[in-house]
Amino acid sequence: MLRYILKRVALSLITLWLLVTIVFLMVSLLPSDIARNILGNTAPEASVIAFREEFGLTDPLLQQYGRLMKSLVTFDFGQSWSTKRPVWGMISAPLLRSTKLAALALILTTPISIAAGLIAAKYRDTRIDRAIVLTGLATSSIPEFVTGALLAVVFGVQLGWFESVATFPPGTSLIGQLDYLLLPASAMAIVYFGYIARMMRSGTIRALESDYTRTATMKGLTGGQVMWRHALRNSLAPTITVVSVQIGYLFGGIVGVELVYNYPGLSRVILDAVKDLDLPVLQVAVIIVGAIYMITTLLADLVIAWLNPRARLELGQQ
């Protein structure tokens, strides 16, 4: 197990390094006069040159790359161009708020999706199954911000059940915040329902068709016992993988939902940075979200390996 963990972590670190390099290359190979664009056409040439000097835009690429790597390795993350504040200071609080929203979405969606997947598998090819599969297909294909907008219209504006603006006043209690966060979190929960339910369904069907399930049925266990003790445990592995992948996607898709509800999360920082061409902020935001995705998939792989020795073997053979 230890060897597996070390190998898997090493692979993740290589991928993370590649990810940083890809982002750096994308940013620096886009041939643009960014200083001129930030300062505007009317800015005097001298201030454009001063800007380039100040942020090292005239340095050789390798040197800029080294600076980025150094700032990431030391968790310093550099300085914003527009506010001149440290990037981490600008990102950390909104990132935490986005995490809260994402966590709520995950809490809402995971149990319901797993239950729906199990039910669909149990009543395979009946009307119930088809209804669940079709609902999942429909909801997971609609962009988060569209679902969010429709929920805001129906439950926020028309029915008035929940707040359709997610900026709660400071000092609101955790329960009180729910009132504001429930709609945006539901929008994301609805989108991810389809992915998780589908994976759970196919995993359970595979488990139900396997030899060990037949053995369990033959030795006289009831349907419920077979489901809980044998099928569920084995169909969880692909579901854990898909949930972990969704955690990464949650942070990618959250931007649209946050904008619909005016939620002061990551989206606000990112969209401001887009407006001001605040490259350091954008770059770090993309890298952090990518790193979150990689950490969650890494953790999922470790959990699966811990549950199932066969998965450990597979990586060993690669």
Partner: peptide, 15 residues
């Protein structure tokens, strides 16, 4: 591992 929408934002704003 790259979030599609965020990279889209990054590249499109720079481009």
């Amino acid at each position: 591992a790259l979030p599609v929408v965020l990279v889209g934002l990054l590249v499109l704003s720079l481009a």
